[in-house]
Design a protein around this nucleic acid. Sequence first.
DNA 1: TTTATTAGACACTAATTGGTGTCTTAATTA
DNA 2: TAATTAAGACACCAATTAGTGTCTAATAAA
Lengths: 107, 107
Amino acid sequence: MNSTHQRRDVFIAIADPTRRKLIRLLADEEEVPLHELTEQFQIGRTAVSKHLAILKEANLVTNRKLGRETRYRLNAGPLQEVKDWLSFYEKFWNERAMVLKTILEEE
Amino acid sequence: MNSTHQRRDVFIAIADPTRRKLIRLLADEEEVPLHELTEQFQIGRTAVSKHLAILKEANLVTNRKLGRETRYRLNAGPLQEVKDWLSFYEKFWNERAMVLKTILEEE
DNA sequence: TTTATTAGACACTAATTGGTGTCTTAATTA
DNA sequence: TAATTAAGACACCAATTAGTGTCTAATAAA
């Protein structure tokens, strides 16, 4: 089985504000056709479609054809990877942890 | 007061794997000069320096000159923004929440 | 004092990105 | 059946990105 679909980094997928807005729209509406998503932006359908393709390659959206529409759906799972990455750094920005760290270092 | 330093999106700053590795190195070592950071990569000093500049624009690192060295330090605070963004989507990837959601919708 | 090291400042390049417009096909609707 | 709508497939473009190499200045070491 040669999986042909591109694998795309979730960090890159969420780097673009248009793509983050797409994610947000799909969080609100469950299943949305391309043309309806396009309405929410100033840019053209082709551009939106490309952004969705990138999200799909990162496995952040799925889509299915329904009549002449292509409907998109959020798959938030891969965002977990970002959360896992972040969790390592939480101790660095937590004020209380910073103080605690200082105390521990002094001992 | 005209703040001249560029503001840079933290999402873009963390999108690049080299920059994420820089963040990781700075998490481990507190304060690291450019040349020492450069050792950890295949790419040249100039390239590393540019990545650090992007991290600095996102306020994810600070630096200070010490003799002929420029030492870099992690400032993880801005990562909080990413965490805040993610927190909205946690409910979508939590299996239990998904099931609960289905039950609630059925009522 | 000469030589090494460290890094900033440029100028340049190839590849990627985010966008466009146009053509075509397929599915609805009038 | 004819007209309209939705979207895939291209070809194309400008701006940005991630990298390079070279030159220069400042600091530190021999």
